[in-house]
Design a protein around this nucleic acid. Structure first.
Length: 488
DNA sequence: CTATGGCACGGATT
DNA sequence: AATCCGTGCCATAG
């Protein structure tokens, strides 16, 4: 009954089209939006790019790559609240990304950023293209396009070999080439395989403890299943040796080659999750001055704003009859798109403002300070529909002042703070605390969680069970994507 | 007997 | 409607 009511009173085709398009646009991250825009621009003569570059906020004309000084300043003086502005993402790449990247000590970060400039698949293909012949190119493409968020294959070699009518060995050759690309170990079927590749390459630059080789070659099932006794027995080693092996693996190998910087979830993520590229929003300090307060840039995928082509509009009046209808269609389509883009920008703007204001501790000081907020509550505050927030958050990433890139969805993670406190507890523990002891410790910090839950968090964070943890002896290698240098 | 991980259920979120 | 998350129960290892 409600449904009937809904459809009957719906406000007409334009309005519903508007809604539908706003939603799809909101769902896209800046890269997808860029693509969408480009194809739309190519296909629709009614749409044009402005010739002047303007401040997206106040429409003042700007020099290339300039960020409207007036707007940001005024906003900050007005209420001392976080400044939020729209920012054309291409500019950013030319002018600002460099300095920001280097200020972070994380060596891997630069690599990751390179990956993020284009999508993972094309990045990989570029690397291998020199070594491939005709069919192999296609095979490589197929493989590269069927990776999940962790960089694992989601498609069987057999399937591909059948599809291209080539022997499986041919596919294997391509695969092994891909595996040796950056990020190392990508295109493996699982962590073990990926880590074997990484180890192989690592052997060139540093000495590998012999036991590590053995365990990785033959003992990973045991390690994953935590069958420590079997492991020790098989390789004839004691607890101490095992700790070394585990440390080495933890510090030098990355079980998830393409994993984003966020957390280090051990749980394999289902297929078809998009790989994150460059951030859609950037949190940083005004003028890079930590005292100046937060500023947020929401990436818009264009330098010159798309708008309705005036000449097209005029021409439409004297259009030949038979084309009039078609032109009208183009016109409507274009104006719709422009409106929806504004809508999208507006929504993102408001959401980011909210986040910058409410989660500033999290943004500035790290995971521990995340306030557990739900999308629903934000929706209520901003007076938009829940699904709007969901869409605005989906598939998008944010860059924090310290350079980390995280999915926007982690702003809504309910347990991130508990997990980081847990991590700290374990880091600072005198002797290994069992899960139930951890529960008690956590309670002192005001977190009430069940014993079972602690166990879950532990494994999510990649922390070994208590009886396998000992005083830490660390190896230091150069490739280490797992540990971020908390904050300083 | 204690510590832990697997499975699966129900409630909350999206 | 689909998915995520915290938990309880039970089996197993030590």
């Amino acid at each position: 009954m409600l449904q009937g009511h809904y459809t009957v009173t719906s406000i007409g085709p334009q309005a519903t089209a508007h809604l539908a398009q706003t939603m799809t646009l909101l769902n896209m991250n800046s890269e997808e939006l860029l693509q969408h825009l480009e194809s739309e621009l190519a296909a629709n003569p009614a749409l044009e790019l402005e010739s002047e570059r303007r401040c997206p906020n106040c429409h003042r004309i700007l020099r290339p790559a300039e960020i409207c000084p007036v707007c940001s300043q005024r906003k900050q003086e007005a209420d001392g609240e976080p400044v939020v502005f729209l920012s054309p993402m291409r500019d950013l790449y030319h002018d600002r990304s460099g300095s920001r990247i280097q200020q972070d000590g994380d060596e891997d970060f630069e690599d990751d950023f390179r990956v993020q400039e284009e999508n993972l698949a094309t990045y990989l293909l570029k690397q291998v293209s020199g070594d491939l012949n005709g069919v192999e190119h296609q095979i490589a493409e197929h493989l590269a396009n069927n990776l999940d968020e962790n960089g694992f294959l989601t498609i069987s070699l057999f399937e591909i070999s059948r599809y291209f009518h080539v022997p499986v060995t041919a596919v294997e050759r391509v695969k092994s080439l891909l595996q040796r690309c950056e990020p190392l170990g990508v295109a493996s079927v699982n962590s073990t395989e990926a880590m074997r590749i990484q180890l192989e390459m690592l052997a060139d630059v540093m000495e590998i403890p012999p036991l590590v080789n053995l365990v990785l070659a033959d003992g990973m099932e045991f390690l994953f299943q935590r069958r420590i006794a079997d492991l020790c027995e098989r390789f004839d080693m004691d607890d101490e040796d095992l700790q070394e092996v585990i440390r080495f693996i933890g510090n030098n190998l990355n079980p998830f080659p393409a994993h984003s910087h966020y957390g280090s979830s051990r749980q394999p993520v289902s297929a078809n999750v998009n790989v994150y590229h460059h951030p859609d929003v950037i949190f940083h300090f005004l003028n890079d001055d930590p005292d100046a307060g937060l500023a947020v840039e929401v990436m818009m995928p264009y330098v010159y704003r798309p708008f309705l082509n005036r000449q097209f509009k005029e021409a439409m009046n004297n259009a030949p009859e038979e084309q009039k209808e078609e032109w009208q269609k183009d016109h409507d389509r274009a104006s719709l798109l422009v409106k929806c883009l504004q809508q999208r920008a507006f929504t993102m703007l408001r959401l980011m403002q909210f986040l910058a204001k409410n989660q500033d501790d999290f943004i500035l000081h790290g995971d521990k300070y995340l306030k557990p907020i739900t999308r629903a509550s934000v929706a209520e505050l901003l007076e938009v529909h829940e699904s709007t927030i969901s869409r605005a958050v989906a598939n998008k990433t944010a860059q924090l002042p310290n350079g980390r890139i995280i999915p926007l969805s982690s702003f809504f993670s309910r347990n991130l703070n508990v997990r980081t406190v847990l991590k700290e507890l374990v880091d600072h523990e005198e002797k290994p605390l069992s899960d139930s002891m951890l529960v008690k410790e956590l309670e002192k910090f005001g977190y009430s969680v069940a014993r079972r839950t602690v166990a879950k968090y532990r494994s999510m964070e990649g922390i070994l069970p208590a009886h396998l943890r000992k005083a830490s002896r660390k190896y230091h290698g150069n490739s280490n994507a797992q540990f971020q240098p908390s904050q300083n």
